[in-house]
Every structure is written in structure tokens, then in C-alpha cells.
Amino acid sequence: MNRTGQTILLVEDDPNDVILIERAFENVKIANPIHVVEDGEKAISYLESFSPRGERKGSPLPMLILLDLKLPRKSGLEVLEWLREQPYLRRLPVVVLTSSRESSDINRAYDNGANSYLVKPGSFEDLLTMVESLNMYWVILNERPEIGAETDG
């Protein structure tokens, strides 16, 4: 059985956004380490590495996934869909963080099991506010589920 650690997985292909998000985390003084992957496939293979056959088996899983939707190779929706099918991963909290306000994107994200849907703000100030809230809610307040409990009995 895996447990979740302190890491936050950021699935984001835009390097600018990665830098700005990391900077915002820094400004808000969030200590959690951020692991960044730049497309959907890499996100899946990273997560798979925590499986019993994976190289990171036994290591603590990320506590939260920040998932962009528009990604190269595999979209964020595909990643979500795959994730919810993995017995040992499916309870992982996923916060969609994307530019799209399209209702089709929002609805499908929830349909695929997103726990939250946030739109990337236009200004850095707003990004700071959001990251602050994100930290407060998902990192500090939110109770973590048991991960992989079902598989291990």
C-alpha cells in the first residue's frame, strides 16, 4: 500500500505557466515540493511508476495533481479517465487548472472524476490569490483519502 506524501504533481506543458505557478507557490510560501511533467503520457508513466511493478513502488504518491487539459500526446481528460480506472490511484485528488472556460470542458472534466476545476487567471496577482486558496483548501484543510486500500484488501 502506497501512501501520499507532500509532493504536488503539476501536469503543464507551457513552461511560462510552470515558472509562474512555481513562483506563485514560492511567493505564497508553500513548502510542498512540486513535480512537473509536460504532457499526458508523462503524467501517466510517472503515476504508473508507483504501481507494485514500478520503480517508485513503495514511495509516497503525490498528495494532489494539478492538471492542465490541453496537453500534448494525451489530453488532461484522458489522463483523468485513466487515473480513475487505476485501483491504486483512483482516489487521488485532481484539481483541473486550465485556460478554458468552455462548459463542455468543465462538464467533461467533472464527468471524468475531477475534484475541482480552476481557470488560470489572467494576472499574476489573481494567480497568487488562487494559489493561496488552493494551498489552504487542498493542502491544509482537505482530508486525504486512503490510497490503494481496495487492492491491498
Partner: peptide
Amino acid sequence: SHDLRAPLRAMQG
């Protein structure tokens, strides 16, 4: 909505 905004965020950020 996705791609046009990303550079803007970068410029601003």
C-alpha cells in the same frame, strides 16, 4: 481560449 491566453499570462506574469 487556451492558447491565446497563455502568452498573455506569461507577458503579464
